[in-house]
């Protein structure tokens, strides 16, 4: 109950933050504006409404990712330090609240705040996708009495891949939030912001570190070991970046639901590790 109370308070505080509200409103506004995007190419027989929908999906997913990235970073760096700065932590810890309950409550609150933000953006985004697909047609080359003609056919409305896309974005930035929250126990907000940014960039470049650590790489063994360790320790944000196959369901990718499940588990396990480390560090921290 104590954990839930802290989580609820955290959600309330975070949702009231003007800067986070701005990120959310701007993202939603841009997603809606993307409805007007169109890519009609006269020299192609295949481009048409289905290409326009793909453009809206791509823009929407990218935008949600950027907004979720900003929200998780800005929120994560300040949640715990602001309690120390404002000295409200003394009031909390003077009550029968254990330190781990405080940390777990903060993590839970951050995860739920992020969930609310991503869910709101996700609902708007999926509604925009369905609206764009409504009445949209795709060119279908065919023949009539031996004469090639270009016909049109209605595209399907509901695309499950967009739901998987929203889920992937949420868990990608849940992972980033957990890293930033853990770092916020030991670092100042400014340092943490850049540290979180760095961790994210290295995590997105996981295929590069993997290549540098591979036996084929022509590098000194010490460097290879360094990259190997980096690859294992740093959360692999690249795992969540499957936007392209999500945007092209026609390319017959079968394993997306299973893959989403596996990387969700990866994000949850990693977030648990970050939370446990935060608990361990915070127990010994002088506040």
């Amino acid at each position: 109950m104590i954990i839930w109370s802290i989580a609820k308070t955290t959600i309330g505080d975070a949702l009231r933050k003007k800067v986070l509200q701005i990120f959310l409103v701007v993202a939603i506004g841009l997603i809606i504006i993307s409805l007007s995007f169109s890519q009609t190419l006269s020299f192609s027989s295949r481009a048409g409404s289905s290409t326009d929908i793909m453009l809206v999906k791509s823009f929407g997913l990218g935008l949600m990712a950027v907004a979720a990235w900003l929200i998780s970073l800005v929120m994560g760096v300040s949640l715990i330090p602001q309690e120390i700065e404002r000295r409200t932590i003394y009031t909390i810890l003077s009550k029968p609240v254990k330190r781990y309950e405080f940390i777990v409550g903060k993590f839970l609150g951050a995860f739920l705040t992020l969930a609310i933000n991503v869910a709101v953006m996700g609902v708007v985004f999926i509604a925009v996708c369905v609206f764009k697909a409504w009445g949209a047609e795709q060119p279908l080359a065919r023949e009539e009495s031996g004469i090639p003609v270009v016909g049109m056919q209605q595209v399907g409305l509901w695309d499950w891949n967009m739901v998987w896309g929203v889920i992937m974005i949420y868990f990608q930035f849940l992972l980033l939030s957990s890293v930033v929250l853990f770092l916020s126990v030991v670092l100042t907000p400014t340092v943490n912001f850049f540290m979180g940014l760095g961790v994210y960039i290295v995590g997105v470049m996981a295929p590069l570190t993997e290549t540098l650590a591979s036996p084929d790489a022509k590098l000194h063994v010490v460097l290879k070991t360094f990259y190997k360790v980096l690859h294992i320790i740093v959360p692999n944000f690249d795992k969540f970046n499957i936007t392209n196959p999500l945007l092209h369901p026609e390319t017959q990718v079968k394993s997306i639901p299973m893959y989403t499940g596996i990387v969700t588990l990866y994000a949850i396990l990693y977030a648990l590790v970050m939370m446990l480390l935060a608990v361990i560090v915070f127990r010994r921290k002088e506040v």
Partner: peptide, 17 residues
Amino acid sequence: RDPNTGKKVPRPDYTDR
């Protein structure tokens, strides 16, 4: 394939002809 949902749709007739 339906380009928006990925559901199987018949390929155009002319391919078989």
